[in-house]
Design a binder for these strands. Structure first.
Lengths: 193, 193
DNA sequence: CCTCCCCTAACGAACGTTCGTCAGTTTATA
DNA sequence: TATAAACTGACGAACGTTCGTTAGGGGAGG
């Protein structure tokens, strides 16, 4: 399917140059066609962008939800650290997560509302399932604490900081160091002594 | 000085729309002149951008270094939490930190090298002074741990996640919750029991 | 005091280029 | 032959930039 090729190229250029910096002619060049031909598949730049955005959202959401559906309430240490590794893997194997991160925090001005809706949606779902997991772990005395909210928000903070580090790719060792450091302190902060 | 007004307007539009999305005519409108007049003060768009960038860098660096120069090695809890509050205050009182954050992680493609140099410079300095503080705190048995690197990197992660939350301004309460959660877990993770 | 000169700051006009988009036409596939 | 997808051509608008030209404000020399 040609429209998937277009979306793939669009994803690449939107990620690197942002919405305003990415041009349809670049994208068309990448798939070997003229920019006008894009209009046979999409209504325009906004339409293309929003479809790429929704694809990225779906990929991220389904990956994360699937991960949590396969874990129990016995091994928070393994499962939480595994989640961080999942995020890193997702980031490296496709550009969608980087695109998603960029557009979540620095959206094109005229699409703020549309993007915000998607971001809030995915955020609420991830936070909800994570919070229920922390709730289970607390009940099972697998971690320290009384409220599930605190470790949930703190963990989401770790995820964000790791993603920022991933954007900043130049140094694989620094990523590893930062992951180890954040995880070590975080786990000590929520585990029993 | 008129060129400061131009830089102020440029900061605003670069922050909101990014480098490619900000136009000289918008910036000129903001200060009540034509875009051609900008060329009486700056060589071009790149020159204007880089001057804004260096101003932002200097503001951030001097604020942070000044904060650390005024603290001792006795009260890490107060001083570290105070640093997070400083970052939040800086973010709210001027746009430079938001601009800096955006351009650090999503720089315009043709200026990547120039921006990277500034980012690495500031990053190394902040990390170095923070690490020396953690070293002192460990020596003074004020916090738990053997290496200063681990808490340093973990704390920088907290700072990053808080800044991301600040970009995402819509919810003041969420910021407060996230700060409290991250800080609570972090402090428990590095303090003695 | 006056005038000549240089400087800064701003201007209108125009440059060449690229942008996103639309219309009409050809090509290929089924 | 019908339909979808690619093409060519053109559009107005905006982009960053350059040009030549004003208006005004010191200093210097007569």
């Amino acid at each position: 399917m040609k429209s998937n090729e277009i979306k793939e190229a669009a994803l690449k250029y939107f990620t690197i140059h942002g919405y305003e910096g990415a041009s349809l002619s670049q994208i068309a060049d990448e798939v070997g066609m003229k920019k006008q031909s894009i209009y046979a598949h999409f209504k325009g730049k906004d339409d293309l962008f929003l479809q790429v955005l929704r694809d990225a959202k779906e990929t991220e959401l389904s990956s994360k939800l699937q991960y949590f559906s396969n874990i129990g309430s016995q091994h928070p240490e393994k499962d939480l650290y595994g989640f961080l590794q999942l995020v890193i893997a997702l980031f490296k194997e496709n550009e969608q997560l980087k695109f998603w991160l960029r557009m979540s925090f620095f959206p094109p001005a005229h699409l703020v509302k549309a993007i915000e809706k998607e971001v809030i949606d995915i955020e609420e779902k991830v936070q909800a399932i994570l919070e229920s997991k922390f709730h289970d772990w607390i009940d099972a005395k697998a971690i320290f604490g009384d409220s599930a909210k605190t470790p949930t928000l703190a963990f989401l903070g770790i995820v964000d900081s790791i993603m920022l580090e991933l954007v900043y790719v130049n140094d694989e060792k620094r990523l590893k160091d930062k992951l180890e450091a954040s995880w070590t302190v975080f786990w000590r902060g929520i585990s029993h002594r």
